[in-house]
């Protein structure tokens, strides 16, 4: 059924698809630093050097019991359950910001443990449920 012409086209296409995939893989690999939207506290901790004037984003969970309101903002701790970063922020806090939930903070690192944010974003997780179910789950725990 397959003529010689068709066969050669198949081989050509497969070869080019494989080679393009490999090229794309390496491009994305080398761009990893730019592709990720935020660093986790552990990634910050493992960095060899930090530049205090460069804008970066740090993301993770807001540690339970860590957030304290100040007059025009909030202080809290971002954790990935291994390492932690203290964040201080002044400005409007998004509605969905809450302890134990995901957060991404944009701003500058003072040092590896201290971050000054000028913007915070609430990160939503993949769980969707009605309030009653969530209350029932909380009770069960």
């Amino acid at each position: 059924m397959l003529t010689k012409k068709v066969k050669s086209r198949v081989v050509f296409l497969i070869l080019s698809i494989v080679s393009v995939s490999i090229i794309i893989f390496f491009i994305l690999r080398s761009l990893e630093e730019n592709v990720i939207y935020f660093f986790s506290p552990t990634e910050i901790y493992n960095k060899s050097s930090i530049s205090p004037n460069k804008k970066i984003r740090v993301g993770g969970l807001v540690k339970e019991g860590s957030s304290t309101k100040k007059d025009n903002g909030i202080n809290f701790i971002i954790t990935d359950l291994k390492n932690e970063i203290i964040v201080t922020y002044s400005g409007l806090v998004p509605n969905l910001f809450s302890e134990g939930k995901g957060v991404v903070a944009e701003g500058k690192l003072r040092d590896k443990k201290y971050f000054i944010a000028d913007k915070i974003l609430a990160k939503h997780d993949e769980n969707y449920m009605p309030p009653e179910v969530s209350q029932a789950l909380d009770k069960a725990n």
Binding site: E32, I36, D125, E126, N127, Y128, M129, P130
Partner: peptide, 20 residues
Amino acid sequence: WWSTLHQPSSITLTSAPTIH
């Protein structure tokens, strides 16, 4: 693959959906 602001998939072939 990367840390994104967008949440991970709720409906996957391998596990139960995380949407009620």
